[in-house]
Amino acid sequence: MNRFRVVLASAIAASGLGVAACAPQSASPVPQESAPRSSAVDPAMPRVEHPKDLEAVEDPCQLLRPDQLAQLGVVGEPIREQSPWGEALCVWGARTDGVRVNLAPVTTLNIGLRSVLRSVSKTAPDDNVDGYPVVVSQPLTYSCGIYVSTTPEDTFSLNVDRGDSDRVDQQDPCALAKQVASMVLSNIPDKN
């Protein structure tokens, strides 16, 4: 059996050398132009028709206006924290029993939706909000985590907990998270 493997390996090597010997040789290798990486081909970095400039937002606590927070029934001052990847994040409603919103921009990693897709075993975004690709990462009974792509590289993470809200429009936490995402998107400037 060992002899058969040696003969087979020799035959493969000889045929490879024969092909290489017959191939035309040039003085210098011709560079192969690779097509530019298109975000349409990579579902983890989907094309965004109208990109938003999330990097221009210095304070994520400015991404929900007071009137929007009132519409959601969120009360109290926001809490500013730092995300595990080093960017600022904002939490509204942390000290109440009602709706709680946790918003974290992801602009320094340049990975689009790749990491969240891998962590939730998905191959592409499941939905969109106002035309922006969305991956639902943590659909639970009282809370829902989503990631929204604002450019192929930049996203924001949004986790909404409906708490003890008895409002009919807040019983589906993922629908509520998408409603909040729409509000956030309306406050992010367009990217030029």
Rank of each mutant, 00 (worst) to 15 (best):
Q82R: 13
L63Y: 09
V106D: 15
V75R: 15
R118L: 13
L54R: 05
V91W: 02
G112P: 05
A94V: 05
V74H: 06
W92G: 00
Q71A: 15
C61P: 10
N110C: 03
L69H: 07
G86A: 10
A104C: 04
L113G: 06
D59C: 10
R114I: 06
S121H: 12
I79E: 13
P84K: 01
T96Y: 04
W85F: 06
Q68K: 11
P105E: 03
L64V: 04
R100L: 01
E77Y: 03
L117Q: 08
P66I: 03
P105C: 03
R95E: 12
L69I: 12
G93R: 00
G86S: 11
E55V: 13
V106T: 11
P105Q: 05
A94C: 00
G73E: 13
E77R: 14
Q68P: 06
V99S: 01
G76Y: 09
D97W: 07
L109P: 00
L117D: 08
V75A: 15
Q71L: 15
T96S: 14
L109K: 13
N102R: 07
A88N: 07
R65Y: 05
P66R: 07
A70T: 15
V106Y: 02
K52G: 06
V99H: 02
N102S: 08
G112F: 05
G76H: 08
G73P: 14
Q62D: 15
T108G: 11
R95C: 00
V101K: 01
A56W: 06
Q82C: 02
P78T: 01
G93P: 03
D53M: 13
V91M: 05
C90P: 04
K122A: 15
T96V: 03
S115F: 09
R80S: 12
T108N: 14
P78L: 04
C90A: 06
N102H: 11
A70W: 07
V99Y: 04
P51D: 11
L89E: 08
T108V: 15
C61K: 12
S121E: 12
S121L: 13
V101I: 15
V116T: 10
W92H: 02
L103Y: 03
V101D: 00
P84R: 02
S121P: 04
E87N: 08
D97F: 08
W85R: 04
S119G: 09
L89F: 01
V120T: 12
Q82P: 00
L117P: 09
A94K: 08
T107H: 04
G76Q: 08
V101H: 03
L103S: 03
A70M: 11
T96K: 00
T107L: 01
D53F: 11
D59G: 10
D67C: 01
R118Y: 10
P105Y: 05
V106M: 13
D97H: 10
P51E: 14
T107C: 02
L64D: 04
K52H: 05
A104S: 15
D67R: 09
R80P: 01
C61E: 11
T108R: 14
K122W: 02
P84Q: 00
I79P: 03
D53G: 14
L69M: 12
T96C: 03
Q68N: 11
L69D: 08
